[in-house]
Structures are given as C-alpha cells and as structure tokens.
Design a protein around this nucleic acid. Structure first.
Lengths: 312, 312
DNA sequence: CAGTACGATGGTAGCGCTAACACTTGATGG
DNA sequence: CCATCAAGTGTTAGCGCTACCATCGTACTG
C-alpha cells in the first residue's frame, strides 16, 4: 500500500487520521519497512560511504564522527571502509560501494589508484576528498594544505631559534607532503639538511620514541616535528627517559592537536587541524548535492593553526 | 541475464569460456552490478551493522577494525552507528539497521533499551554483544567480565601494599561494573571506602588529571585505577606536574592497554583486553551463523590480563 | 544403444517498495 | 450551478537482481 510508504516518508502529506491509523497498524503488525526495496525502487539508498586509511588512529575517527553526526541528522547511514594506507584496497572499496549504489562518498586524501577518478565521476554521485587540498578534485575537497602546515611548523621552530631540525612521520602521502613543506619552510630560512625518520603506520608513542632515538644517534638535534601527536608524545617520553629537558635542550612539536597534546607534561605545541569539522562539512556538502543543489563549493580550505604550548 | 549473476557470485559454476566472455562484456560495458537489487532478490544484504558508543575513543575502534577485517575477507560490508552512550540512540540505530535488512549485528555492552532484545530476536538475524559478558545474551556475546577485571585490579594493587585506593572512570555501564568489581576486590582484602571520581565521556588525559586533582583534594591516596589508559596518562601527567613520584608515592593503573601504556614514562601498568580480537571473533561468529552453522558458541570469554609495568 | 546422471545454461516470476499518474471529494469562485 | 482546483488516496508498472525450475547436451553405465 502506497499510503504506508507515505506515512513513513512524507507523513505531512497524509491526513492526520489516516496517518494515525497507519501508525497503529504498523505497531500492531510489528511491521519493519524494507529499506532495501525502497532503495531499489527510488534509486536513492540514503547511505553514504566513507573510506579512511584506518580508524585505529583517532585522527580519522574524529572526521568519521563529524560525518556520522551530520548524516544521522538527515537519516542517512554510514558505510565504512579501511584501506590500511593502500590504494588498491581503496579502489576495491570504491567499486564495492558503487555497487551498493551509495548516494555519496567521502575519501581520504587526493591520491587514488588508476581508474578510481573516472569510475566515480561516471557514477554521477557526489564525492568529497578530505585531509588535503587540490585544485583538481574528483568532485569536491574539504581539507587543508599539508605542505603549508609543514612549512608553518618549520617557520615556527626557526622563529624560536631552533636550527637543527628533524621530522618524524609516516610514509603516507599526506605525511610526505608535510615533510616537503617542512623542508621548504626550513630552506627559506636557510636551514637545509633536515633529517627525517619515517615510521610505518599505524604510529604509536613507541614508534616516536624509537625514531627520536635513531635520529639522536646520528645527528645533533635541537627540534623535532612529529607527524602526529602520538609520535610526539613518544618523543617527549624518550626525552624524559634520557633526562633531556624540553624545550630548553630539545623542542618537540606535534600535529593534529589531539586531546593528549594539551594534557601531556610538558604540554605539546602542535599544529591543530579541524578533523571533526572536516567530516561535518563533507557531510553537509554531500547532502546539499544529493538534494540537488549544485551551487556548493568545490573546495573548502579549513586551514590549520599552530598551537603554542610548553614543548616548543 | 542469469549467467552474469553467476559469473559474479559463483564463477566456478560456469564454463571457463563463458566466464571469460561475460567478464569481457562487463569490462566493455563498464557494467556495475547493483547489489541493492541483489539483496532484495536474495534476501541477503552482505552487510553487517556495528553499533558502538563512540569511535573517537580508540578502545572501540580497535574492535571495529578487527570486525571490519574479518568481514572484508568475506566480502561483507560494515554499516556503522554511534550511540554516544545513549540507549535510545542505540534503539533507533537498531531499528534503522533492521530496516536495511543487515545480515547480522554487533552491539556494545549488554544493557539495551526496552524492546531492543525482542525486536532483534524477532528479526532472526545473528547478534553479538561485546565488551562485557552475560549468561543471557540476546543471541551471542564475546567479551570479558568487567566486574572481574575491576576486582583483579584491586587485588593487584593491594597485593603490592597499596591500601588507599581510588577509581577514576566513565559513567557507562561497563565502567560502573569495573568500579563495582574494584570495590568488591578491595572489600575482600578488608579495604573499604574506595573513592571514585566519575568523568563524562569521551574521556581525555585532561579529565584524568582533573579527576586525580579532585580526589587528592579530598582523600589521602596511594593508588588510583583508571577506567582507561588515557585517563591514566592524564593522572601520570598530573603526578609529574605535582612532583609526585610514581609509583613510590602514587601508584597509577590503567585499563585497555592502549599503545600509549607501553610508551609512556613511567610505563603504565594496565589491564589488557583483546579489543581487536573481540571484533574478529564477533565477525567470525556472525559469518558462521549467517552460513547456517548453528553450532557456534553463544558465549566467548576472551578474558583480560594485568600487565605489570613501572607505574604500579 | 537406451537409460541415467550431471554439468552448463536459460526462462520466468517475484522480492517490497516508490514514481507517475489517475481518481475522488469537497471547497472556491464566477 | 458548474468549472476549477487542491488535498487526499489509490492503481499500476517496474527498479535489477536471484530462486526456482526447465532444458539441453554430453558422458557414463550396463
């Protein structure tokens, strides 16, 4: 009965009495509507897919959280996939999600396997890339410039008089972009030869400690910029173990401004990014486009901010 | 054409030549199979839903990760929902996911809103509750006893000579169960009057530091058991700021054995639980039951282990 | 060589819903 | 008093697959 469909989807188009009768019947029969059939008939699934490298890292789970909240408000659901930092897994997930006829997709980063871009564009669904920026998004992009963030970190450290710099980070594209920016920022200030230690994902405090230990064995070092706050926390712990005073003997700077940055002793100077807002904005852009509004921005730069604390 | 369906779902039932022809056609036409239609026709969605309080907390994201991995191996997808520790939100998500005709569901905890149990049972899909244990699961349960974990923490601390104990934790059921166990364990050893500071979710190191500060203002304290390692880390930082030596003046014990526990200085004694394995086992049980095997265990106790490190 | 079995392939119906349109009713206005 | 209209409700077709059964050819058995 079409009336039941209307009672569930557009209750305001029914006479109150009819609506009440339908609702009573639904209750009595314990009727559970089949959204799969609805999706097939209407060609709208009310599902959005999100693909992240990993959710074990709280850096992305904040974005997922923001996205999920926005979607939930509009009765959309979230299908989640993890790539473990592998482009081929991302491509496989994209195909699987397109098969599900999701109404939109959120990707992490702007680098994708061959063919992903064209398949998404052919599917005709809105797509948001996140956690980076590009002039040529698949469809839309919400993020910040990793390169600029790295550069800002270098400038910050050099402005405070640190000259012997090092970078500790992951091997993914975004971390590498931050390293590039960090080196560029240093070069502008005539600081060359920035050492870098790359650690495999997912990165933990222990990795940060080990990376710092490795760097210290090779270079005289006054400041280290870590690609995320967990690595930076590990660097701080390593300094504590070696009785290296922070920041007077060693400056430590983190990235992402996770809750631990403000809590740790000494408090961690970090580059804050708006992870949760990224998810929210991505969700809003998708919903806007799903609703047929094509006026949405294609490129949203949420920026970043160096948060000065005690460690650098 | 039914042959195409077979090429995609049961390729080994086709003659190799036919399979190759179909695959070539799929490639040429850029055909993207519609899994929604398949779900409707076959009454199997190849989707499993997971509901967690929050993924911002890495404690649950490890479980999700394990679940997602198991599901991905069998070409199942994961629909994710967050309750923000609210039972009514959980109930709403359960209804929405049942409407999607998911093939199975993973819940967090064993306390649910009225009607959730019966609606799930009537749906006839396999359900796994996690992160706790009960003799009367909705369907299956994979977890550990939070009460016993709390008790073990109390016994551990008391065995090391600490008598003035306090607990810092969240207000959710599982944290409260650990507190109950902690108090019971203390009582067995004739230690009564265990102070407790409850912090709202999601808990961060700052919350842990503030809670410890609050407790210290009221009680003489020798040991604190924190409901997760982030709170414990905050407690350690607070001790560092106050120049309270750990563990000689204050013992700190955490829960979950997150990566930070091993990395922090001093290294954190913690109660380890097998979060990722919980997700994997939950996924395996679901898939087993979806495949029609009804012999699966209804109750899997993954246990926990006190990991002794420097802080207590 | 007929009878049987089995693997490979195809035809048809229908999963449960919604888009599109048709219809009914009562109100409005010239 | 009837044309016009809007609000409320119903009818029909079909979304793209898969379950089920039918058919066909080939190989094997006695």
């Amino acid at each position: 009965m079409i009336t039941v469909s209307r009672a569930l989807n557009t209750p305001d188009k029914l006479a109150p009495a009819t609506l009440a009768r339908v609702r009573a019947a639904i209750e009595r029969l314990r009727y559970v509507p089949n959204l799969t059939a609805g999706s097939l008939a209407s060609n709208r699934s009310r599902i959005v897919a999100a693909i992240v490298p990993t959710i074990a890292n709280s850096i992305f789970s904040d974005t997922i959280d923001g996205l999920a909240q926005t979607l939930a408000q509009h009765r959309y659901q979230l299908l989640l996939g993890q790539t473990h930092y592998r482009l081929d897994e991302e491509a496989a997930l994209v195909d699987a999600f397109l098969g599900r006829r999701v109404d939109g997709m959120v990707l992490t980063g702007i680098a994708h396997a061959r063919g992903v871009r064209s398949r998404l564009q052919r599917a005709g669904i809105p797509v948001v890339e996140t956690w980076d920026l590009t002039a040529r998004p698949i469809d839309m992009v919400v993020g910040f410039s990793n390169r600029a963030a790295g550069e800002a970190a270098a400038r910050y450290l050099i402005a405070r008089g640190y000259r012997s710099l090092a970078y500790v980070g992951g091997t993914d594209d975004r971390s590498m972009a931050r390293l590039t920016g960090f080196r560029e920022g240093a070069a502008v200030c005539c600081v060359r030869d920035v050492a870098a230690a790359l650690v495999p994902a997912p990165s933990s405090p222990s990795d940060g400690a080990a990376a710092l230990a490795g760097l210290l064995a090779q270079h005289p070092l006054r400041a280290v910029f870590c690609s995320n706050d967990m690595l930076a926390a590990g660097a701080l712990f390593e300094c504590a173990r070696r009785h290296i005073s922070v920041p007077s003997q060693m400056a430590v700077m983190g990235f992402a401004d996770l809750p631990i940055a403000a809590g740790i002793e000494p408090a961690l100077t970090s580059v804050a990014v708006r992870a949760k807002e990224m998810g929210q904005r991505a969700g809003e852009l998708l919903l806007q486009r799903i609703a047929g509004d094509t006026s949405a921005q294609r490129r949203v730069d949420l920026g970043f901010a160096v948060i000065e604390r005690a460690s650098a």
